[in-house]
Amino acid sequence: MAEPTRPADYWRANETLIRGLLVLWAGISLGAGILLAEPLNRFHLGSAPLGFWIAQQGSIFCFVAIIFYYAWRMDRLDRDFGIGE
């Protein structure tokens, strides 16, 4: 791999990752938690209506998972591109 293209590749991989995770973030919170709350409430998790559960519990768990997943993937990206501090 030619040396000059590497920072650009690194940045592109980072951007792709961020874009994907932000789509997931918006899809869960604004999509499933708000826009689709009524239809999702017809399903249940345990005894909690699903739309309600996502809006008040599930979305927050997902936010935490998204941030840790991003940090973990960036560790691998840093290692693959030999970027350290």
Binding site: L21, L22, S29, S59, F63, I66, I67, Y70
Partner: peptide, 11 residues
Amino acid sequence: WTGGYVLLALL
């Protein structure tokens, strides 16, 4: 008040 942390962490 929690979702903003995703923006903060990623962007």
